[in-house]
């Protein structure tokens, strides 16, 4: 999803909403069937990623071990056997040419995909939160400066900048970490825009004025009055940004500038599979399908999180809203 749309959607959450609390949030999330199913899929993927070494050990395979005996070198390296060489040892077949085990590579690929996107998301949210809050609470000059920097940041197309940055960093730097830093480090403008706008709205509200009158200091007000209300839009943003970050990592790897071999990555598998789709379609369909399922599940889950955090949307779920008080003007 594009940055502009994300900002619009996550920023639309009302800042003045009754406290929902974690328990109510879970209840509202669970009340949405699609989101619950998506959450299960995501949970499964996370477990797979976490247990990658365990799972490959169970399968008795190593993601980087070559098996030249399993591919037909005379035919250009096509895997021997049906469906890309699926067998009792190689549950999902083997890679053409090299004969590396696909199951092991897919499982480790999940690790890279989710891990990179997670670090990138955390980084972008943290940066955005700090910069946005500083802009909203600082003096007029600080705000001007930070807002201009945010403008510049928005003007940087993430794919292009990421590409360019990856060009100049030495190969010795651990690639997954670098990609996470690049994606998160140049993509914080959305969060900071939302945080600044919401914090400014909150600052103008009477309860913040009342807190000032009670004699409390600026930072105490920011922590007690502003931060709790910023949680909903920021969490929503993070939930929806996470799947986009997965796509960005896959895209960079697909272009050959992201994760470098031999580290397995779904995007990079796709590039290699491009030329093999006729001889070994599973090699292409596996990473493509997994990428699709992962991003779809995360997006649906993100939508669910958004609904659960937005009291207006949640009231349609009829969970945790005490028989909504319809008083005057109930018709619309």
């Amino acid at each position: 999803m594009s940055e502009a749309l994300l900002v619009k959607e996550a920023g639309a959450a009302p800042v003045v909403a009754p406290a929902s609390g974690a328990r109510l949030f879970w209840r509202r999330l669970r009340a949405q069937r699609a989101a619950s199913a998506a959450a299960l899929v995501v949970l499964l993927l996370v477990l797979v990623a976490l247990a990658a070494p365990l799972l490959t050990a169970l399968a008795g395979q190593d993601p980087n071990a070559y098996h030249p005996d399993l591919v037909d070198s005379a035919a250009g390296g096509v895997p021997i056997g049906p469906f890309g060489g699926i067998s009792a040892d190689h549950w999902l077949g083997v890679e053409p040419q090299t004969g590396r085990d696909l199951f092991a590579r897919i499982v480790y690929g999940a690790r890279v995909s989710l891990g990179v996107a997670l670090v990138a998301t955390v980084l972008q949210i943290t940066l955005g939160l700090i910069i946005g809050l500083a802009a909203a609470l600082g003096s007029r000059w600080v705000d001007q400066l930070l807002s201009r920097i945010t403008d510049i940041n928005v003007a940087l197309p993430i794919m292009v900048i990421a590409l360019a940055l990856l060009a100049i960093v030495p190969e010795t730097f651990p690639r997954p970490v670098l990609i996470a830093l690049v994606i998160g480090g140049i993509n914080w403008a959305g969060t900071s825009k939302i945080v600044r706008a919401q914090a400014l709205t909150l600052k103008s509200l009477d309860f913040v004025s009342a807190a000032r009158l009670s004699g409390r200091g600026k930072w105490s007000i920011a922590r007690r009055e502003l931060l709790p209300s910023l949680a909903a839009p920021v969490i929503t943003y993070a939930a929806l940004a996470f799947p986009s970050n997965i796509i960005v990592e896959a895209a960079l790897s697909f272009l050959g500038v992201g994760i470098k071999p031999p580290t397995p990555s779904w995007g990079q598998m796709l590039t290699e599979a491009d030329t093999w789709y006729q001889a070994a379609p599973t090699y292409l369909l596996l990473p493509a399908g997994l990428l699709f399922v992962t991003v779809l599940a995360l997006t649906v889950l993100g939508e669910g999180v958004r609904t659960a955090l937005d009291p207006r949307a949640a009231s349609r779920l009829r969970v945790g809203t005490k028989s909504a008080k319809h008083t005057e003007g109930g018709a619309a």
Binding site: V16, S209, A210, A211, R212, L213, S214, G215, R216, E225
Partner: peptide, 29 residues
């Protein structure tokens, strides 16, 4: 001087932080 000059606001919804208990709000000063 802050505490000696107080204000009661117009909008009963916006004048209390929805995410804090009313006791906490009253205890602020």
């Amino acid at each position: 001087f802050r505490r000696e000059l107080q204000m009661v606001f117009q909008d009963p919804v916006a004048s209390l932080n929805p995410r804090r208990s009313v006791g906490e709000s009253v205890a602020d000063p």
